[in-house]
């Protein structure tokens, strides 16, 4: 059902945890119907220098979370905002069709974390 890449990120997820003094936190999803993803970012000079996640959900949701943290680390805010759901799914070698909608929450959670960071900066 899942690609080897998905299974790798699911069984050995990268960047699990929280950042206590995060500059931005984004949460997406709902546990009553599917998955919930929470992303923490630390930003310096407009660049994401650290990122961590916590996820409630299936194998795909956890793999997506792990993958997006790898993709954004070291990126500028604008580069991070350019990452789409499709990018994440492609980097994982594809996701099952029924998981694309409910488990592919990484890009949305990341956007929320960036919005949170920007609103705090103002």
């Amino acid at each position: 059902m899942y690609t080897a890449k998905v299974m790798d990120h699911f069984t050995n997820p990268r960047n699990v945890g929280e950042i206590p003094d995060a500059d931005g936190i984004g949460t997406e999803g709902n546990p009553t119907c599917g998955d919930v993803m929470q992303i923490f970012i630390k930003v310096k000079d407009d660049r994401i220098i650290d990122v961590k996640f916590k996820t409630f959900g299936c194998g795909a949701a956890i793999a997506v979370s792990s993958m997006i943290t790898e993709l954004v680390k070291g990126k500028t805010i604008d580069e991070a905002l350019a990452i789409s759901k499709e990018t994440v799914a492609n980097e994982l070698g594809g996701l099952p069709a029924q998981k694309m909608h409910c488990s592919n929450l990484g890009a949305d959670a990341l956007k929320k974390a960036i919005e949170d960071y920007r609103s705090k900066k103002k």
Binding site: V16, T27, P31, T32, M37, Q38, K54, T55, F56
Partner: peptide, 21 residues
């Protein structure tokens, strides 16, 4: 559970009924 945002509980209910960790 170490990965779950809910490890400390289901959190508070948000506007649309979602659980805020």
């Amino acid at each position: 559970r170490e990965m779950s945002p809910y490890a400390k509980g289901w959190g508070t209910k948000g506007e649309s009924g979602e659980c805020i960790p």
